Amino acid sequence: MVVLHTTLGPLTADAVGLVLPHEHVLVDFRLPGEAPADAADPGAVVARMAPALRAAAAGGVTAVVECTPPGLGRRVDVLEAVSRAAGLPVVVATGVYREPWVPDWVYAASDADLERFLASELTEGAGGTGVVAGFIKVSAGDDGLRPVEERVLRAAARAAASTGALIGSHTADGRVVLRQLDVLASEGLPPERFLSIHTQLVTDPGLRQEVVDRGAWIEYDHVGQGDDEAALALVLASLEAGHLSRLLLSHDAGWYDPALPGGGEQRPYTTLNSTFLPRLRAAGVGGPDLDRLTRLNPFAAFAR
């Protein structure tokens, strides 16, 4: 059975409506060794972020993909507590981010160790909890894959192949995305199990087109970040280019940061459904296409 793995258990396709495929609840960008192990106060995170998730649910969201990997302050126990308090399923990530946020243990680990770590979080539970991770989050620098990032990517490819999981990569340069796809192909992973995150940052339409032509997913996750006119134009151009079946939309919102007083300021998870989708509809995008963008595509990408 194909399911979406979440903090509230596996969800089948008939239990899922609108899914936000790229958001954050809790994230800490302090470098390894800078943040205390107990940096996040669970009660404070729940008090601030559960209402934000409840507002998303009230607006029609049925699941949120939380894209913080280990090494950036990921606390699966806290994500589960926020999710249960809000009554909204959250998909959590395993993986390893790019340098300089790569944890020290990764450098010392063997390739087999890296693969086992990822696979175990995808099948047994992540972060010392019983919550199964829903996908693998990786990253790469804009100047190309560094050796440790390629090692992580290859381990991710093998873990994804054995579990069926999606690999999502924070990679801003389209040429590096294509290099990642080459590495995954050499490991035997189909491009359909790869998501180019933040594809709005790939400014060359030809590079975006090549990523889609290879069969990978692309994601515009800047809705509600201040220039929805540009975001709307990009989505419409992408649909015109034939990307409907490979495109995901989200906000990259939330962001409780324990390094900031009170967790900082958070953007809401509600703009997509409240204002952006109505604008797409007014621009001529029909209901079935909106359903594909917000329900069918995210489920197809992240479920396994």
Score class of each variant (00 low, 15 high):
R151F: 09
F117Y: 15
A119V: 10
G242T: 12
L11M: 13
P298Y: 04
D113N: 03
P70M: 04
A133L: 07
A86L: 13
I218V: 15
R175G: 08
W101S: 02
I136Q: 03
R295D: 06
A172K: 06
E192K: 01
P288F: 09
G87K: 09
P69V: 00
T123N: 04
T94I: 11
V91A: 08
P36W: 11
D142K: 02
D28C: 11
L236I: 06
Q209Y: 00
Q266P: 14
T199M: 12
L145A: 05
R246I: 02
G141R: 11
F29C: 10
P191N: 03
A300H: 11
P36E: 02
F29T: 15
V61I: 13
R246T: 01
R175S: 09
H24N: 14
L11D: 11
D111V: 02
E124Q: 10
S238D: 01
F299V: 11
L277W: 04
L296R: 15
G17E: 15
L122H: 04
D173W: 12
P100E: 06
R175M: 07
G263H: 08
V138D: 02
T94L: 10
A157K: 06
V82S: 12
P70V: 01
T270E: 03
G286R: 15
V92A: 04
A241Y: 07
Y97W: 15
